[in-house]
């Protein structure tokens, strides 16, 4: 089944990007790598929705993409301004 191969490829890419999280010389690299990991998690949930034939997984993808975007915005604001909100 192709879905298993796609799951393996996306998990391998998540492992490679987690190396960048560990190594990243600056804070921007780590934030970018966490953003990448969030999008990777959304893709993994979509593939799992195909594999388990559950549509609730697709609702989880909507929520996870929202959470990944909001956390990236919060971390960039903290990097730039030193605070998240006023």
């Amino acid at each position: 089944m192709i879905i298993n191969l796609a799951l393996a490829i996306v998990s391998l890419s998540a492992l490679l990007v987690s190396l960048r999280v560990l190594r990243g010389p600056s804070w921007g690299d780590r934030i970018m790598a966490f953003d990448f990991l969030g999008m990777n998690l959304v893709v993994l949930f979509a593939l799992l929705a195909v594999r388990t034939k559950l549509m609730a997984m697709l609702d989880a993808t909507v929520l996870l993409s929202l959470l990944a975007f909001l956390s990236t915005i919060a971390m960039t604001r903290y990097l730039l301004l030193g605070r998240v909100m006023k």
Partner: peptide, 15 residues
Amino acid sequence: ILFGSVFVLTAAVGV
């Protein structure tokens, strides 16, 4: 799905 997963792996190698 294969197209997309290969592109995601390419993005990881680029990162």
